[in-house]
Amino acid sequence: MARPWLNVLAQVVPVPLGLLLSGALVWAATNADWSGTSSNSGNTWTAGSMGLGNDSKVPMFRIDNMRPGDTGSNCIDIESNATFPTTLKLYSNSPNWPSNFQSFINLTIEVGSGGTAGDCSGFTRHKTVFDGTLDQFIALHTDFRTGLGPWRLSGKPPNSRSFRFAWKFSSSAPNSAQGTNTNEASFTWEAREQK
């Protein structure tokens, strides 16, 4: 004879038993997950730096008592301490001058290597970058955009360019040029980050 309570038990027990077993499986699965991590620490960011200097402590030229046909030259070494590649240019930020006296001073600028301020004996010319008159240079090359160049500097030593400036007082300078002097001329080198 069948026992009815066994039928009831067979129908009721599986549900809580199933819930209990599934909960145990979830708990075991949660606690059995392995994990691993990898980290990279000590990260910092430091900005690069850029500066420009030259080896001359005095003006390249202070010429007195010029006569027609007189010539001279001087060198200057421009050095960058930038920690990244830069573009170098040369210009003048002198104002335009009212007289035409500067048109009688012929100016040749060469870029190269070697040579120091006051001593061009070790200078090696790579290229002539300007051959005209002083007033033309002042009028045409007034800022970085219009400057002579560009010359690439790597950001690693040796990181410099040498320049030789040669001048000649024109043999055709008129009598009216006697006792005349130029306004102060400045030559500016500017380096900017290469784009």
Rank of each mutant, 00 (worst) to 15 (best):
W167L: 13
W5S: 10
L52W: 03
L148D: 05
F101Q: 09
A2I: 12
G132A: 06
R145Q: 14
G114R: 02
S22W: 06
W97A: 15
T71H: 08
S172G: 10
N96M: 10
E190M: 10
S41N: 09
S80V: 10
L17M: 14
F169D: 04
G42L: 01
T71V: 15
P150E: 01
L134Y: 04
W45L: 14
I63M: 13
T128V: 14
D77F: 05
P14W: 04
G53R: 08
L52Y: 03
I63T: 13
T142S: 06
A32M: 12
T83F: 02
D33L: 13
T46I: 12
S154A: 13
N31H: 15
A185K: 08
N40P: 04
F144W: 07
T87W: 02
R67Q: 12
I63K: 13
G36A: 15
W27A: 15
T133Q: 02
G18Y: 04
S22Y: 03
G53W: 00
V13G: 03
T44G: 06
A47G: 12
T44V: 12
D143P: 06
S94K: 00
P150T: 06
R152M: 11
V58K: 07
F61K: 00
G69I: 09
D55Y: 03
S176Q: 10
S49G: 12
V8T: 11
P174Y: 03
I105E: 00
P14I: 09
A191G: 10
S170I: 11
A28M: 08
E190H: 07
N100Y: 08
R67W: 07
S154I: 07
A185G: 15
R67F: 11
W27S: 12
S56T: 09
S176T: 14
S103Y: 05
L19M: 10
T83I: 04
Q178R: 13
H126Y: 09
F163K: 00
P59W: 00
L52N: 00
N93R: 08
L20D: 02
C120Y: 00
S162Q: 01
I78Y: 02
L20M: 09
T180V: 15
E110A: 10
R164K: 15
A24P: 03
S170E: 05
P59D: 02
F144I: 09
K127L: 11
T83R: 00
L6W: 06
T188E: 04
T30G: 12
R3E: 12
K168A: 15
A32D: 10
F169K: 06
D70Y: 10
A28E: 01
I76R: 00
G118Y: 04
P59V: 11
R125F: 01
A185N: 14
L148M: 06
G53Y: 00
P68K: 03
N40V: 14
L140Q: 07
L19P: 01
N7R: 13
A191D: 00
W167P: 00
I78V: 15
A82C: 05
E79K: 13
N81T: 15
P16H: 01
A2H: 04
V58N: 05
N106E: 09
F101V: 13
S73L: 09
R145D: 11
